[in-house]
Amino acid sequence: MASAPPSHRESLTSLLILAVLFGIGCGLVLVQRSPNPAVRALKQAAQFPADAAGPAGRTGTRIPIPEGFTAMSPPEVYDPERLADKINGKAELYLSAGVQHLTARRLAMDGDGAWLEVFVYLMESPMDAYAVYSAQYRPGAAPAGVSRYSYTTENALFFIHGPFYVEIVSAAVGPETQRRLATLASEFVRAHPAVETVVAERSLFPQEGIVPDSIELQPADVFGFQELDDVFLARYRFDGVEMTAFLSRRASTDEARELAAAYAAFLERFGGRSEELAFPAAEAYLVEIFGTWEVVFTHGRMLAGVHEAEDRALAELLGRRIWTSLSGEAP
């Protein structure tokens, strides 16, 4: 017996159901194409439990997750080519200082819902780590006590440890936040054994007239002169006149002398005028350029001098004080 054809009502009902299902399907597609960013972030956070610090991996960096913290995101690793994808225009600062990798991770602080992000820059050497640390030092910050070169601000903690430069940046402020940042920093130091970095050049700058917290290590292209690299700078102020002192430890005495001569020649090439300089150093130059004075001299392997001093007498005075300091003599 042949089955009866569907009634008009049945057909209509079927079509209606199909239309509803089609509508639901379309709705799902549309919603899935534009997920709520907040939901996505929360889902991402749920994926990384507190014990998911993971192995150090190829970067040799492991961001610890101490008790009281929860991972919000997986570790992100950026090599030099991709560094700008994380820190945009600041990448150049790290690239010129020899960055190997950046490892970053966000952690939630249990209890108050606040969060922080840890940025670990693995540099080629401890001095490279010091270079990026000193370039970004926040004057007046309180020492953090995590390592010899560490400081804390209202919401963040910055330090170097071996070849690592570490920033822990919190979205909260206050004593409890600072305590937690210190805990995390200490865990990191424990997880990465390293010899303490000591930057001897810092103590070679004369103390009189120095602007506090102004010592900085510039890794490359110093004063626009490509050959001049790895130079320590310190700002000085005498009677309202500012100038910069510089020191650079070279591989040999000859290299220091050649570099001093090359820098003086570079200044002359761009309009500088050399003047006689009565100075104890064998290799010493005094150049006036664009209304400012440059003193350049060598002391053994050290290349040193004064940059952009508006007063010749003060430039010579500071130059002599640096010479005295390098000689180990009493000022």
Binding site: I87, K90, T153, N155, A156, V173
Partner: peptide, 8 residues
């Protein structure tokens, strides 16, 4: 800048 990181 452009990242900053500290209130200071």
């Amino acid at each position: 800048g452009p990242t900053g990181g500290s209130m200071s």
